[in-house]
């Protein structure tokens, strides 16, 4: 998954849908832990379109 920090509005939408709880929102920073399974949930909720990645089969 690619996070385009320049587009990020720091709203935390991605944090709340990550099933593995890999994301954390700091004041103006999204901290990403390793282990993403590219489920694409964060892509579907980011209001800014700041997250991009390969589409998983089920979506």
């Amino acid at each position: 998954m690619i996070f385009e920090e320049e587009l990020c509005g720091y709203c935390g939408a991605c944090v709340t849908v990550c099933p593995l709880n890999l994301l954390q929102l700091f004041e103006f920073k999204i901290h990403k832990k390793h282990g993403c399974n590219t489920c694409q949930r964060c892509v579907r909720v980011c209001p800014m379109g700041a997250i991009k990645g390969e589409l998983a089969d089920e979506i």
Partner: peptide, 26 residues
């Protein structure tokens, strides 16, 4: 601490949401 509440997650009171559960707003 809002929709992204870490407190609710750590205390296992909210396990996060599915995309369909949320309205994404700008």
């Amino acid at each position: 601490d809002g929709i992204e509440s870490q407190i609710a997650r750590i205390a296992q009171l909210n396990h996060g949401y599915e995309p369909i559960d949320l309205v994404s707003c700008a």
